[in-house]
Amino acid sequence: MFYVHPMTPPPKSLPPADPALRLRARAAAANPAGRFEPYARAVEADGWDIPEQERLARTEVALERPRSVLTRNSSPDIPFDRSLNPYRGCEHGCIYCFARPSHSYLGLSAGLDFETKLVARPTAPEVLARELSRPGYKVAPLAIGTNTDPYQPIEGKYRIMRQILEVLRDFRHPVAIVTKGALIERDIDILSDMARMGLAQVGISVTTLNADLCRKLEPRAPAPARRLAAIRALSAAGVPVRAMVAPVIPVLTDTEAEAILAAAQEAGAGAASWILLRLPHEVAPLFVDWLRRNVPGQAEHVMSRLRAMRGGRENDPRFGSRMKGEGVEAQLLSLRFRVAAKRLGLDGALPKLDCGAFRVPPRVGDQLEMF
């Protein structure tokens, strides 16, 4: 039976979402209320000795028809000022995902809801075409996958990302994609055409080479070897690829930095970058709960090392330090990465995207240009 309680600060140990709920390939085991909710819901025994019928936590998808799809930002920490997200929530279910708190804006939890209650935006391609056609539109690279993954499993059904790429190709608009989804190989035909025109580059996130750890951290994301295969396929097709060692998790994955870079370079990556683990808002208690369930003997060690790189806090949202951390350990990690990347030839930048080829494609009935 569910009871509603006034919101209190999140406990150090999160209660299970529902004892009768069976979780298969899910990273979060709890469903805490979002930070904007006035009440929290908890499962409590009702006194009757009647076993609940077990049920599987399944993925649900709602549809959204957005009025606008371009999101603007002015952050000094990232190299783009506009982005697009075909989906809200992500079935990959990465426990550390900094995008989890965005589900709170929908009145949903950053926990299980984020990886099971998804939102697809099937009209995003036509809305994008409309926005790009506006007379005052000024071209700059469009980032996709900076919040939730555009190549998560439901893309296989909805194909929204492929339609978006078709729009961008027709408009000759530059795009930078971030993903860990192997489904991106389906769209190599479009991406290779755009890459030849200097309009596309891809970042593939590789968190760890340990398949067992990967399955626990990122339960529905492709295995490490599969992501390296995607790097190989994209680079062979002429698409510039950046290997993203992200996030780097102290104790659990930081020792793998050099090995990940070497594997990515062998697969054909042309550049590399890294980001330290971030735990904003609701992500921190969810991640700590995951540590206690999966690596209890290392949980406090992980968090103490992270706090050492975050000025004594679990998260540091300040511009300039939130991506790399601070202190001696963060500096050492940065130095290790820089030395390894230079040795492997991954310390340069990918080719600059071309913003000069943009044009609004003619529509049926438009008069064609003479020259």
Rank of each mutant, 00 (worst) to 15 (best):
S192A: 15
V167K: 00
A243M: 12
T148Y: 11
A200D: 03
I144W: 03
A230P: 06
V167I: 02
I154A: 07
A129F: 00
V241K: 11
V139M: 07
P240L: 01
V206W: 09
I154F: 11
I184F: 05
I164L: 14
T148C: 04
R215P: 04
L234F: 08
S205G: 12
L199Q: 10
A233W: 10
A237D: 08
L209K: 11
Y151K: 03
T146W: 10
L165K: 08
V175C: 13
L128R: 01
F171C: 02
L132F: 05
I231P: 07
R186Q: 10
Q152H: 08
G136Y: 02
D170Q: 08
D149R: 01
A200M: 12
A124L: 02
R196C: 03
A246K: 04
V239S: 04
E185F: 04
V245K: 05
D149C: 02
Y151N: 02
R121G: 01
L183G: 04
D212C: 04
I177M: 12
T146M: 14
L199G: 09
V119R: 13
F171H: 15
A221Q: 02
R242S: 14
G145Q: 04
R226E: 15
G145F: 00
F171V: 03
S235D: 05
T207P: 03
A129D: 00
A120P: 01
N210V: 12
K216A: 13
I204D: 08
V127T: 09
I188A: 14
R226V: 14
